[in-house]
Simulated scan of single mutants.
Amino acid sequence: MNQCRVIYRGAVSGISVLSWDFGQFEEDMVQICMKILDLNFKHKRDPAEDVSARCNPIYVSRVITNMINSDTTYGVLNGNWSSDYKYGFPPTHWNGSYAILKQWYSSFYKTVKYGQCWVFAGVLCSGTFTSG
């Protein structure tokens, strides 16, 4: 339940450590994470069934995993493994989840650009800690 922890990034040939602020204690973080849950396709299909399944941490983790990825409608992050970040920020710009989630929420659920594996992992952990 620490606000800040370490995330590892890199490849087998070189792993680096990055301090990550999970932001789960920010004032509106619960509201943001609940919106992620409410915008998932299962909630839109059957809200009562979706809400009743939220007591299951496996279910919640799967929903959040799906919603963090921009391949879904209202997905939080767009992955980019190129060197062209002209329409957003390079993944190295981010050092915490709250800025990403706040940008997504404040823009009325427009995908944030850009993330890579460690960014997806940090945001996923923040959403799971807060929602679960």
Rank of each mutant, 00 (worst) to 15 (best):
N80C: 14
W104K: 11
R62Y: 11
V123Y: 08
D50P: 12
K110D: 10
S106T: 12
K42M: 14
N80H: 06
R62T: 06
R45A: 15
I68H: 01
K42R: 12
P91T: 04
N78M: 08
L77F: 05
D84M: 06
L101E: 07
W118S: 13
T111S: 15
P91Q: 09
G88W: 05
Q116E: 14
L39K: 15
K102P: 00
F41P: 02
P90V: 03
T92K: 10
K86G: 03
K42T: 15
G122K: 02
S97H: 07
C125A: 08
V60L: 14
I100T: 07
D38S: 12
I68E: 00
A99N: 10
D38N: 11
Y85P: 03
N69E: 10
V76N: 11
I58F: 12
P91C: 06
I64T: 02
W118P: 04
L101Y: 02
V60M: 09
Y74N: 11
E49L: 13
C125T: 07
N95S: 14
S107F: 13
C55Q: 11
G115I: 07
P90M: 07
S106H: 14
N78C: 08
N78E: 14
K110M: 10
P57N: 08
R54P: 02
F89S: 05
L77Y: 06
W94C: 05
T72S: 03
Y109G: 01
C55D: 09
V119I: 13
I64N: 01
V60H: 05
T111Q: 09
V63Y: 09
S70T: 06
P47E: 07
C117G: 14
V112A: 13
G96W: 03
S106Q: 15
T73N: 12
I64S: 00
D46T: 13
N78V: 00
T111R: 10
K86D: 11
Y85S: 08
L37S: 05
G75C: 08
H43D: 02
G79K: 10
